[in-house]
Every structure is written in C-alpha cells, then in structure tokens.
Amino acid sequence: MNNAFAKSWMIAVYAFLYLPIITLVVYSFNASPLVTVWSHASVKWYVALMADDDLISAVKLSLEIAFLSALMSVFFGTFTAFALNRYRRFSGRTLLSSMASAPLVMPDVIVGLSLLLMLVSVQHWLGFPDRGLFTILLGHALLGAAYANVVITSRLREMDGRLDEAAMDLGCKPFQVFRLVTLPLLVPALVSAFLLTFTLSFDDVVLSSFLSGPGYSTLPMVIFSRARLGLNPSINAAATVIISVVTIGVIALSLYQARAARQRKREMALVYSESNQNT
C-alpha cells in the first residue's frame, strides 16, 4: 500500500468529518434568511441570538444540568469503577457490570422510555418527583456514570496495585490509602470523566425529551424542535458559538497535556544523562 493512497484516504475521511462543520460555521455568517442561499456576509444572526430569550434560558438550563449531572456521574462512576475493580468476586458482580454498561449500549429511546415510566410509577406512589430539572438530571447522570465508569476503570487498571500496598505497609488504613494515594493519582481521570459527561449532558436530546416537563427545555431540545421544522439561521449562529467554545477548550486541554508529557520526557532524559556522567 503506497503512501499517496494512505494520505488521500485519510484526507478524504477528515474532509468527510469536518466539511459539514465548516459549512455550518460559514453559513452562519450568511445574511439571507434562506440558509443555503448565500447573499452576503453578516453577523446579524449573532445579534439576533442575544435577543432570543428561549435560546438563552435553554442555554442556562443546559449548563446547570450539565454541571450537576457531570458531578453526579463522576461520583457514581467512581463508586462503580472501584466496586468492580477492587472486588473481583462478589455475588452479583456480573449483574452490576452488565447494569453499568447497559446505558452505554442501549439505544437512548429505550433508556429514556424506561426511566420515564419508572419515574411516573414513583410519582404515582409518592407524589414526587415532578418532571423537570431533577428528572433530566437523573437521566443524564445515569448515562454519564456509565461513561465515567469506563474512563476511571481504565485508569485504575493501569495504576500499579503495589502503590496501595506500599501505602498500607507504611501505615495507611484503607480509607487513608484512598485519600492519600489513589485519589491524587486518579485526578486526571476524574477531570476527563467530568468533561466528557458534561459534554454528553450538554448534547443530549432524546433523554431530555422523555424526562423533561413543561417549562423545562434544554438547548438541544430547542435546537431539535427548530431543526425538525427546517433550516434555521439562528441554529447556525448558536452552533458556531458552541462549536468554537468546545473546540478551543478541547485544543487547549490537549496542548496542555502534550506539554506536560513533553516536560516529563525532558526531565527523564536529563536524569539519564546525569546518571551516565556519574558512573
């Protein structure tokens, strides 16, 4: 297989992945209310965005839900990851691991429908919860916890089990081991899990649609309801803002990680040359 073929294949796939996004961004500066018919460049849809109260309140709600559900996801995801990795044998371990991965693979419509029907039954008996922020939160946290579990598990697996033993050997009780050794080493994974689950929540439309009640429309729900009706210049502008924020965030984070990795490599190289001089 030659190099030129490989290169063109890769370029084609990246073009396939990025062309729609670029088009979306470009057309957000189109003055015409007909999205696909280019008239001239303008920022008028961005100006209109500022006055779009539905959209703004939806953004606020989505941010709130994303933040809280990401916290919950990381919390429960960490618990699950620890239970499944620390205890190799307990009755019902298989059931727990299947339940933990079910939200990952089950179609969103099923997760949404089953959760809603459960919540309706609970409401029938107990009189709460009403459908709204809390119920959406629960759905997003469920999905997020499943993803957080995967991220944290992979980090736990690559962590040297001897570190825990070393801590215990030096006098740590089990909880101290967690607080002083495991948790600090887990922080990068917890941060990634938080960011991932935040994004998932901020992006979800199906679960929110099932679980929300009157007056609670998340940003994706508003965008979805407008997109169903056809092309809409306000979505282009909103999309461009969201995509820019996420892109900048992701690039900044990955640059930071790459720099930390380079720094570490440099330090190790330095040690190597030092120890060569000594001997």
Binding site: P20, I21, T199, V205, I223, A227, I242, V246, T247
Partner: peptide
Amino acid sequence: MLVMLPFWTSFLLRIYAWKIMLADDG
C-alpha cells in the same frame, strides 16, 4: 484528537449541518 474532536462537539448540530449540505440547493 482530530477524530475525537467532532465527537466532543454537539452530535445534534453535526446532523443539522448535513441538512445544509444535502439540501436541494445545498
């Protein structure tokens, strides 16, 4: 990273983008 990046940006918006791409006058 370049494969992951679209995954981090909104799925819904990326689907919407195809509406623009594939429209009759798209």
